[in-house]
Amino acid sequence: MSAATLLQTSLSDLSLTRRGKVRDVYAVDDDRLLIVATDRISAFDCVLPTPIARKGEVLTALSQFWFDKLGHVVANHLLTSDVSQMPENIQRHSEVLARRSMLVRRADVFPVECVDRGYLVGSGWKDYLKTGEVCGHKLPENLQESAELPEPLFTPSTKAEEGHDENISEAQVRDIIGADATAQLRDTSLRLYSEARNYARERGIIIADTKFEFGLDKNGELVLVDEVLTPDSSRFWPADQYQPGRSQPSFDKQFVRDYLETLDWDKKPPAPAIPPEVAQATTERYVEAYKLLAGREL
Score class of each variant (00 low, 15 high):
129 L>E: 13
209 D>L: 01
296 R>Y: 10
296 R>K: 15
228 V>I: 01
93 H>E: 11
27 A>R: 15
233 S>F: 02
6 L>W: 10
89 N>G: 09
19 R>M: 13
112 V>T: 05
93 H>F: 14
153 L>Q: 03
126 K>A: 12
165 D>P: 00
224 L>Y: 01
225 V>T: 10
122 G>M: 00
23 R>Y: 07
244 P>I: 01
184 Q>D: 13
220 G>V: 05
38 T>E: 03
258 D>R: 08
231 P>H: 07
218 K>I: 13
214 F>S: 08
7 L>I: 12
186 R>V: 11
165 D>C: 06
6 L>N: 12
275 P>I: 09
176 I>H: 07
203 R>I: 06
154 F>P: 00
265 W>S: 03
290 Y>M: 10
76 N>M: 06
176 I>S: 10
55 K>D: 05
19 R>P: 12
203 R>V: 07
33 L>S: 07
257 R>A: 02
40 R>L: 08
274 I>L: 06
133 E>T: 15
47 V>D: 00
275 P>T: 11
3 A>D: 15
257 R>S: 04
157 S>W: 06
248 Q>E: 04
111 P>E: 07
283 T>Q: 13
86 M>P: 00
45 D>L: 03
52 I>C: 09
50 T>N: 11
259 Y>K: 09
253 K>H: 04
184 Q>G: 10
269 P>V: 04
216 L>H: 05
233 S>I: 03
54 R>E: 14
11 L>C: 09
28 V>W: 06
47 V>R: 03
100 R>A: 03
26 Y>Q: 08
46 C>L: 05
118 G>C: 01
225 V>D: 10
228 V>D: 06
73 V>F: 11
241 Q>P: 08
91 Q>L: 08
182 T>K: 11
134 V>C: 01
255 F>N: 10
9 T>L: 04
145 E>I: 02
30 D>H: 12
53 A>C: 12
282 T>F: 09
122 G>N: 00
85 Q>A: 15
28 V>I: 14
209 D>V: 03
264 D>R: 14
119 Y>T: 01
295 G>A: 09
154 F>Q: 01
92 R>L: 13
170 E>S: 13
248 Q>L: 04
71 G>R: 00
212 F>D: 05
92 R>W: 09
218 K>A: 14
216 L>P: 05
161 E>P: 14
14 L>S: 10
217 D>V: 07
270 P>Q: 02
128 Y>M: 00
118 G>L: 00
243 Q>R: 14
89 N>K: 15
261 E>S: 11
168 I>W: 01
50 T>S: 14
67 F>L: 00
181 A>N: 13
128 Y>P: 02
142 N>P: 08
27 A>I: 13
49 P>D: 06
129 L>W: 02
279 A>N: 12
230 T>K: 05
227 E>P: 09
251 F>K: 10
223 V>W: 00
287 V>T: 14
105 R>Y: 10
148 E>A: 13
250 S>A: 14
74 V>W: 08
134 V>Y: 02
81 S>G: 11
246 R>I: 00
251 F>C: 07
197 R>Y: 11
36 V>K: 04
127 D>T: 12
151 E>N: 12
100 R>G: 03
87 P>L: 02
146 S>P: 03
